[in-house]
Nucleic acid binder design. Structure first.
Lengths: 155, 155
DNA sequence: TCACTTTTGACTAATATTGACTAAATGTCA
DNA sequence: TGACATTTAGTCAATATTAGTCAAAAGTGA
């Protein structure tokens, strides 16, 4: 709570609201005006201080009546395990190694068989197929990491 | 149901009626007047929020006594439905349209909320991200089709 | 100084709103 | 019946209204 810089102040402002209400919905330009910063600074604050690791899920909509919505979510207790898997996946992973990751989630009880099969389909060779093998492994990693991040909390 | 903009309000208004009556029949200009928008905005709302994938069928008639009729319909049985979705996905699909496909599976009862969220994660922007936008949409389509094909076996 | 974080703004993307023009159905009247 | 007016709805592109991205500039602290 030092509030040394404006980003910290915006962070505190939003987290203050979230102490009461579980979710905030803001108009980016309004908050930017309020703190006298450019609108994109709101994105910076959200990106650096409201991550899924911190237990926040962010949604937004553009156009008339647009908004940014931040929701505080309850993180699961086997977070360490999922974090370890994210670490293990890294930037790139083969199909074979992915299967091990998914099996681990299944054994863990994090996902059931049906969910495991859906994830297997999503990272299948056909799913990530492109003319470049290295790219396939990177895409597979991205998909897995995105799913793993989603499994971190109750939705 | 945030109803930040007029289109959302019109959508809510119509869906509210459809909760009771299975079908609504409106006079375009009347609803436009009621919400103080131009008539063509009604078309915009219908086009973006009452698609066949969401389970709505729209009919209309021009001239004296003209109308727009929106009907909530029962979706096809699972297999047919999945086939239709595979067709709709094609070789390439945007994130936005993918969400409609996944919502359709959920409305249909083919997948539950948790599974829907996993699939949403799999086709997220971050998941398919690569330096080429067109490729992202192709990869997204491949993932979705792979999952849809898998769901065919299960159902 | 050097690495890191914060701040800024130009450019991009998504969504909503508007209105001019078009198309279709119906009404009217000779 | 046929011509034309009237009354609807449809289409599409321009404009408006948001938020997102990215990299350069500025600040900060060891």
């Amino acid at each position: 709570m030092e509030d040394q810089n404006i980003s910290d102040m915006i962070e505190s402002y939003l987290k203050q609201i979230l102490m009461d209400t579980k979710r905030v919905e803001i108009r980016r330009s309004e908050v930017a005006d309020q703190f006298n910063v450019v609108p994109s600074q709101i994105n910076y604050v959200i990106k650096t201080r409201f991550t899924i690791q911190d237990g926040y899920v962010v949604q937004s909509k553009r156009g008339g009546g647009g908004y940014i919505r931040i929701e505080k979510v309850k993180l699961l207790d086997n977070l360490e395990h999922i974090d370890a898997l994210i670490e293990a996946v890294g930037q790139s992973i083969s199909y074979h190694d992915s299967v091990a990751v998914i099996r681990s989630l299944y054994n863990d009880g994090t996902i059931n068989r049906r969910e495991a099969n859906i994830i297997l389909a999503a990272i299948d060779k056909n799913a990530v197929s492109v003319d470049n093998r290295a790219q396939e492994d990177r895409t597979r990693a991205q998909i897995l990491v995105e799913i793993l991040n989603h499994l971190c909390y109750e939705s």
